[in-house]
C-alpha cells in the first residue's frame, strides 16, 4: 500500500466527515456520511482487509444510513434544518475537544515528558523486552496510555456534566 494512496484516502475521509458534521441540514450530513463510510471501506480494502472493509460498507453505508433516513422521515420537518450557532454555549465543548486533542497528538508524536524516569521504573519491574506480534507497537507507547486514559476520562466527565447541567438556550 503506497503512502500517497493512504494520504489521499485519509484526507478525503477526514475532510468529508468534517464537512458532514459542520453542515446544518441533516439530509446533507447523511449523504456525506454515506460517502465517507464508502471511503473508509475503500481504505480498509486497499490495505488488504477486504472483509472488514466490505463489512463496514454494508453496515454503515447500508444499514445505518437507511436507519438514519427512516429516523429523519419519522421526525419530520424539525430534523431537516435546525438553528445551531457556535457561541458561548459551545465554548466548553470546544475546550474539551482541544483537551482531548493534546494527548492524542502527543501520542502519535512519541513525545516523552519525563525521559528516563518511566524507563527506569519499567526496567526495575523487569519488563524491558518488547513483545512481538500484531500490536507490539503499543508497548512503545506504554508511558502514555495511563495519561491518555486519565485525560480522556476527565474530559468525558466534564462533557457529561456540561450536557446535563446547562439549561441551554431554550429559555433565553
Amino acid at each position: 500500500m503506497s503512502y500517497e494512496i493512504t494520504l489521499v484516502l485519509g484526507i478525503m475521509l477526514v475532510g468529508v466527515t468534517f464537512v458532514a458534521l459542520l453542515v446544518r441540514k441533516l439530509v446533507w450530513s447523511l449523504i456525506l456520511l454515506f460517502y465517507s463510510s464508502i471511503v473508509f471501506g475503500a481504505l480498509l480494502i486497499a490495505y488488504g482487509a477486504a472483509f472488514a472493509g466490505l463489512f463496514h460498507i454494508i453496515t454503515f453505508a447500508g444499514a445505518v444510513s437507511v436507519l438514519f433516513m427512516v429516523i429523519l422521515m419519522i421526525v419530520g420537518a424539525e430534523a431537516w434544518e435546525y438553528p445551531d450557532k457556535l457561541g458561548k454555549d459551545n465554548l466548553v465543548g470546544m475546550i474539551l475537544a482541544i483537551l482531548a486533542a493534546i494527548p492524542l497528538v502527543l501520542l502519535v508524536s512519541n513525545f516523552e515528558p519525563f525521559p528516563g524516569r518511566i524507563t527506569e521504573q519499567v526496567q526495575l519491574s523487569g519488563l524491558t523486552a518488547q513483545p512481538d506480534g500484531a500490536l507490539g507497537f503499543l508497548w512503545l507507547l506504554r508511558s502514555w496510555d495511563l495519561l491518555l486514559v486519565v485525560i480522556l476520562v476527565a474530559a468525558a466527565m466534564l462533557g457529561v456534566m456540561n450536557l446535563f447541567s446547562r439549561e441551554g438556550g431554550v429559555e433565553k
Binding site: 421526525v75 445551531d84 457556535l86 459551545n90 462533557g159 456540561n162
Partner: peptide, 15 residues
C-alpha cells in the same frame, strides 16, 4: 475529535 466536537457542540440528538 471531529465526532467528539460534534457531540459537545450540537443541539440536535440526531447530529
Amino acid at each position: 475529535l471531529s465526532g467528539f466536537g460534534a457531540i459537545a457542540t450540537t443541539k440536535n440528538l440526531v447530529k
